[in-house]
Design a binder for these strands. Structure first.
Length: 193
DNA sequence: GGTGCGATTGCA
DNA sequence: GCAATCGCACCA
């Protein structure tokens, strides 16, 4: 008998598509992290949000390129990690071509044996021990990567406006958040449109 | 050099 | 409903 085939990693081609396409396609994919002490952490993604281009008022790229948001301007396939409210880290996966700032915020994953451990972007970063040391890190490297997992069928995907961006005017109403319907690890309100 | 605030979370 | 807590963008 043979061992279960190792999960294939998502390649750079996966990330070099527009942020909304990547966001939708990320549901069911497995986020994987190798800790410095050797431990392996893995959990399927169940909630994401797309941030695409400098016209998106909710995006960190809206003011144009700065020191902070520079990773968003790179070609897809690296992480963009920032500190929010002075205490929580958020993991983003940079997408698209170089010089087009775009990324997908990973908001929740189905943590094994504790559905709430990675429910919300700050909690997810904490669960995976992700901080700014991983800002700009390759998603094809030894520390952080994604595996094919099991894509989620269209009937199981919900699409709503994004969380926590009410300041973004008309962009706040855009339905750029995707999550797995009814999944216990999804964060935030369930009654959004 | 000073000021304002946030792609959140947890507790009162 | 609101405090916690700090890097960084922006202005002087």
């Amino acid at each position: 008998m043979r061992a279960r085939m190792a999960e294939r990693r998502l390649s750079s081609d996966f990330y070099r598509r527009d942020a909304v396409t990547v966001a939708r396609d990320l549901l069911g994919r497995v986020l994987a992290r190798r800790l410095p002490d050797g431990r392996l952490l893995r959990a399927p993604i169940v909630e994401v949000e797309a941030y695409d281009g400098t016209r998106d008022r909710a995006s960190h790229a809206f003011p144009g390129r700065t020191l902070r948001n520079a990773p968003m301007f790179a070609a897809g396939g690296i992480a963009y990690v920032y500190l929010i409210y002075g205490m929580h880290h958020c993991l983003n996966l940079v997408t698209g071509e170089a010089d087009h700032p775009a990324a997908v915020l990973v908001r929740a994953a189905a943590w094994p044996e504790d559905p709430k451990a990675a429910s919300g972007p700050g909690k997810l970063a904490r669960a995976f021990a992700i901080d700014r040391a991983l800002n700009g890190a390759s998603l094809l490297g030894p520390d952080l990567w994604l595996e094919e997992g099991t894509p989620v069928p269209a009937r199981a995907v919900a699409r709503t406006r994004r969380i926590g961006v009410d300041y973004a005017g008309s962009w706040a109403a855009r339905r750029l958040r995707f999550y797995v319907k009814g999944h216990p690890s999804v964060s935030g309100p369930r009654d959004l449109r």
